[in-house]
Write a protein that binds this DNA or RNA. Structure first.
Lengths: 103, 103
DNA sequence: CGGATCGTTCACTATCTGGTTAACCGTAGC
DNA sequence: GCTACGGTTAACCAGATAGTGAACGATCCG
């Protein structure tokens, strides 16, 4: 699975991303207070890792997580592109209408 | 349900958004060629409508779909914000390191 | 060594998701 | 009026997802 949208579709995973956006953190730090068991956290992290949104480096018995912002860029760019196309469509319509009106 | 990320988590729904980005279309036009039955399409449209990504106006027996780009903006802005925070974090680290080095 | 800590894997369950077919509703057109 | 068309609703099914508790692995520390 390599779909950043799917990875960000769960609020807990977006919460983890939000915390990592402020700097790298261990699993415990990045996931405290979500009110969910440790295995659940572990699975969410796996999803984020598999899509490349988050990377992990093992330091002794703790794991340090980092955000990988390029993947977010890909998704954000897709959205911006759809919006841009949509706005271009309206430009074309306006142009057509004003041409029609002037004849 | 009001989660744009969840709405965009499925490739067929993103495909629909891509087509609507080029201008409004009927259900049949916007969803042709996805290789899936009509009820499946209907459900995907319902999700997109419920999150506000797409709006619908009934015209006789056809339904005309339009993209609602503001909702995409919200999601794109979230991603950009995470990225910006992350970059700011590195700026702070760099600053700290260069100060440390200069003492 | 022995206990505590950080985090994972295993086995299992309940719910959600995405798909199907069949039937239906409203409109368009002969 | 009747049939064709665009699209939805209903009922159902298989697989994915999100959660749990229990056990484990590895590291740190007394």
């Amino acid at each position: 699975m390599n779909d950043p949208f799917k990875a960000l579709a769960h609020p807990i995973r977006r919460g983890i991303v939000e915390r990592l956006a402020e700097g790298p953190a261990t699993v415990g730090e990045a996931t405290a207070g979500f009110g969910v068991s440790k295995p659940a956290i572990s699975k969410h992290l796996k999803v984020l890792e598999e899509t490349g949104v988050v990377t992990r480096v093992v330091e002794g018995r703790t794991h340090r997580l980092s955000l990988e912002p390029e993947v977010l860029s890909v998704a954000a760019d897709w959205m911006d592109q759809q919006r841009a196309l949509w706005e271009r469509f309206f430009d074309v319509v306006d142009e057509y209408l004003s041409e029609k009106e002037s004849t």
